[in-house]
Amino acid sequence: MRALTTVPVLLAVLLAIPAVLTAAAPAAQSAGSRLHITAGGTPNHPRVYSGGGKHVRGIDVDADWVVVEGFTLDRPSAPGVEIRGDHVTLRDTTITAPQGGDGDGIRFFGDYIAIQHNTISRTSNRGGAHADCMQTFSSDSPPSNHVRIEGNRCEKIDNMCLMAEGPNDGEGDGKGHTTDFLIKDNFCETLVASQTLMFEDVQRATITGNTFAAGPDHAIGLAIHSTGARVEGNRVDPSIPCEVGIDDSSREGYSGPEPGCDP
């Protein structure tokens, strides 16, 4: 298959979207089709694709300096949204019951990606899928760095709220690194998987202010040299016996609650 602390100033600056944006770019595809975005913007003028609630069958982003906002995806082909690019923001979009493939709501690959204030629900493991709310990996795909995942709702998710795998996790291509994730103020409801967030070979993840709802054996898994993680200020449902599971290779630089289980 493929926490409340001050966010480092550098990360906040690098992820900020400039105040001056291009005029909203029209979504030319008709309702019911998959939106394929290939035209990006510039650092001072990101290109904005604003849906205004428009229904589409999925979204593919293959461009840099793009903002995608306000779309509705009902039973899209999975992944509902796939991002391949740098400086891409996805926000205020609803993804419900992705169909087919591995059943994921969002997949992302690239640097300086922001996923904010979206609602993803009803991913299903039927048919042998591993249906995550969000996933990234690095196997013939670029590693992801400087990622901000904030204020999203992952509801009724069979698998994980986030599965993040770096290039050196044993299944990746060994090229580059996956680093610098901020996971903040999200609601995560995992129904089947053993953990809500899983990091393998992902360095410097900050996990803060999230709500982990009932379901998994533990909320956070850190494995395969997922070093430098910082965990603080999360709300963990009493039914979840362990907040943080960690292996020996990931303990370097860890800051947070005493790990209570394996990842």
Results as ranks from 00 to 15, higher is better:
M1Y: 06
A3C: 12
P8C: 03
L15A: 14
A16N: 14
A16G: 12
P18T: 10
V20G: 08
A23L: 13
A28L: 13
S30P: 12
A31C: 11
L35E: 13
L35F: 14
A39P: 11
P43C: 12
H45S: 15
R47I: 09
R47V: 11
Y49I: 10
S50Q: 14
S50A: 15
S50K: 08
S50G: 14
G52K: 09
G53R: 08
H55Y: 10
R57P: 00
R57I: 00
G58A: 09
G58F: 04
I59R: 01
D60H: 03
V61K: 02
V61F: 06
D62R: 07
V66C: 05
V67Q: 13
V68Q: 06
D74P: 06
P76T: 08
A78K: 02
E82Y: 00
G85P: 09
T94A: 13
T94K: 12
I95W: 00
T96A: 12
G101R: 06
G110N: 08
D111S: 14
H117V: 06
T119G: 07
S124M: 02
N125F: 00
A129W: 00
D132G: 07
D132S: 11
M134Y: 03
M134P: 05
S139M: 02
D140Q: 14
P142K: 01
P142H: 00
P143T: 06
I149M: 07
G151M: 05
K156Q: 14
K156D: 15
N159I: 00
N159Y: 02
C161N: 02
C161V: 04
E165R: 07
D169W: 00
G172T: 05
G174K: 00
G174Y: 00
K175T: 10
K175G: 01
G176V: 04
T178M: 13
T179W: 05
D185E: 15
N186Q: 05
F187Y: 10
T190D: 02
S194P: 12
Q195A: 13
T196P: 05
T196Q: 07
M198I: 08
M198A: 12
E200F: 02
E200D: 10
E200N: 08
V202W: 03
R204H: 11
T206F: 05
G209V: 07
A213F: 00
G215I: 01
P216S: 04
D217H: 09
D217N: 13
I220L: 04
G221F: 01
L222N: 01
L222G: 02
L222S: 03
A223H: 01
I224S: 08
H225N: 15
S226F: 01
T227I: 15
R230F: 08
V231P: 03
N234F: 01
R235Q: 13
D237L: 02
P238R: 02
S239P: 00
S239D: 05
C242G: 06
C242A: 09
S249M: 04
E258D: 14
G260V: 06
G260M: 06
G260C: 14
C261I: 11
P263I: 03
